[in-house]
């Protein structure tokens, strides 16, 4: 353990600095620019914006997108420093993050999760599959993507998108200053 702490001291803190001006926006599409206001109206308390909960649903991904999402909690990206956190129940959530195409079998589970998120709620589509189904668009076993099923607010492109892009997308959309 001392060795590890020694390495940590030698190598320094790993967390990446993010400068909101430098964020590359090629992979980020924001459909709804009013996200921040919508969220602020939810509560009179301005601090609310510092506590945004995310619920992840995998509706048919290949699991690479999931790996990248869970990377957001590692010390490199540490999304909690910006007030985003993953929660276990839709009732606690503000954001629904969807990865992967929508399979027939997952469709109702996805809708139920969405319905159970209290208003105001936002939908973030992660990866090329999520929006329209990507290569699985026409398959007998899927129903395409979420674009015609849920109101998507943010799309992060990529296959899979890199964690830094996901984080940047959230920061941009919710108008946060990067620390």
């Amino acid at each position: 353990m001392f060795n590890i702490i020694k390495t940590r001291i030698k190598e320094g803190i790993k967390t990446k600095k993010i400068n909101i001006e430098d964020i590359k926006k090629d992979n980020i599409v924001i459909f709804n620019e009013e996200l921040k206001n919508k969220l602020l109206n939810k509560s009179k308390n301005k601090n609310f914006i510092n506590n945004i909960s995310v619920r992840v649903v995998d509706s048919g991904s290949c699991n690479a997108c999931l790996h990248e999402m869970s990377a957001l909690t590692n010390p490199y990206y540490d999304m909690e420093r910006f007030g985003f956190k993953f929660v276990a129940a839709p009732k606690h959530a503000d954001i629904l993050m969807v990865a992967g195409c929508v399979t027939r079998n997952m469709y109702s589970a996805l809708l139920k999760t969405y319905e159970n998120i209290p208003y105001p709620k936002f939908v973030v589509a992660i990866g090329d599959c999520a929006m329209n189904g990507g290569v699985f668009k026409d398959s007998y076993a899927t129903l395409g993507g979420i674009e015609d099923k849920l109101p998507v607010d943010i799309l992060i492109k990529g296959c899979p998108p890199e964690p830094i892009d996901i984080l940047a997308g959230l920061l941009l959309a919710f108008g946060k200053s990067a620390k």
């Binding site: 195409c101 997952m106 290569v135 699985f136 076993a141």
Partner: peptide
């Protein structure tokens, strides 16, 4: 299981090798 059944094997039918590789 099989909640995420996407039908990959069927999609590939009739595709070229490089298309299938990306699948």
């Amino acid at each position: 299981h099989f909640w995420k059944h996407r039908g990959i094997e069927k999609i590939a039918e009739g595709k070229t090798i490089s298309e299938t590789l990306s699948l």
